[in-house]
């Protein structure tokens, strides 16, 4: 049910355990974090197709590429910091370049990792993966969408990076909705300003939209669950109506969702853009809600950014 607080990784595990029964071609790799990433759910059902790699992410990617080259659909999981950074060049050469069927599903993205601190908070992974040719980048809005996306990427032939959160947060999508790679969805219609979120920031965009309504501002909310390919059609349609934009991501504003939007805007439809995300900084230890406040990722921050974006639009119009 929408509003339920569920962790994305739990539904990733759920989807994998379903795939264990339905798709004999799926092989799952993990680097000593199966209980955290929830690939352990797959291991329970198909231990013969689960490969523990140990703490060796570079080797995990190389091994994944060899398995994929031999016809397997490979899921390789670990924390987002390691999955995107530790083995970036391995992903580039062994997976992206030969366009192999490897799904890198990274959990524990962003500062919502909390107390573990900056070493474990991936705020750069979207940028690192988005720049790779042949790579599809997915960041589902909640647990339900994670489940559907896991099934969708298993059926898709090619390299995928999917980023998931650690903590529980409210579901915003329909539990039975189909996931289409590359298609964004409008969760709330509005006419004044467009709020585009990805990952758990989508839920916060909805909260911000509710708050903006109190101030008489009608915000549209889009869930950009695929970062690459970027759904410029859905975004463009919304911006034709609203003419101002806020992007919100639990990621650096350099190279992520905001940058992808800016690339599109500057090329095709320059409208005021305000970006919510971390600002060229590392995170730190703390409770997730404290960190969201300190790093400017709260619904209030999004609402303020919406007002700024809207004011810039009105200034241009006057």
């Amino acid at each position: 049910m929408t509003g339920n607080k569920i962790a994305q990784r739990d539904y990733y595990g759920k989807a994998l355990s379903c795939l264990a029964g339905t798709n004999p071609n799926v092989v799952v790799l993990d680097a000593d974090l199966a209980d955290s990433t929830k690939t352990s759910e797959f291991r329970k059902i198909a231990p013969e197709r689960f490969i523990e790699i140990g703490i060796a992410e570079q080797n995990m990617i190389g091994t994944a590429s060899g398995l994929a080259a031999s016809g397997k659909t490979v899921f390789a999981s670990t924390f987002a910091v390691f999955a995107s950074g530790r083995c970036w060049e391995q992903i580039r050469l062994a997976v992206a370049y030969p366009k192999l069927n490897v799904k890198i599903v990274a959990t524990h993205c962003g500062i919502s990792v909390g107390e573990d601190g900056a070493s474990h908070q991936a705020l750069e992974d979207i940028a690192l993966m988005r720049v790779l040719p042949n790579m599809t980048v997915i960041s589902p809005a909640d647990a339900y969408e994670t489940y559907a996306a896991t099934k969708a990427i298993a059926d898709f032939n090619g390299p995928v990076y999917m980023r998931l959160g650690r903590s529980e947060f409210p579901a915003v999508t329909d539990e039975n909705a189909e996931f289409v790679i590359g298609r964004a969805s409008v969760l709330r219609e509005g006419t004044d300003v467009t709020l585009v979120g990805t990952g758990q920031m989508v839920a916060l965009c909805i909260e911000a939209a509710e708050a903006l309504r109190e101030d008489g501002i009608d915000a549209e909310v889009i869930n950009m669950s695929t970062i690459k390919p970027f759904d410029t059609e859905t975004l463009g349609k919304s911006l034709n109506k609203t003419g101002s934009l806020v992007t919100a991501e639990e990621h650096s504003i350099i190279g992520g969702l905001g940058s992808a939007a800016a690339e599109f805007l500057s090329r095709e439809m320059p409208v005021p853009l305000e970006m919510i995300g971390t600002k060229d900084t590392f995170g730190e230890s703390g409770a997730p809600d404290q960190l969201f406040k300190k790093y400017g990722l709260t619904p209030e921050d999004i609402a303020e950014a919406a007002k700024r974006s809207l004011a810039r639009k009105r200034k241009l119009e006057s």
């Binding site: 490969i51 570079q58 190389g62 091994t63 590429s65 060899g66 398995l67 370049y97």
Partner: peptide
């Protein structure tokens, strides 16, 4: 069989191929 050129990666790929077998 595999794209290579950046050194130190081929043995991992070969492991994956052997595991698939």
């Amino acid at each position: 069989e595999m794209s290579t050129g950046s050194l130190g990666q081929g043995l991992s790929m070969a492991c994956g191929i052997a595991l698939a077998g």
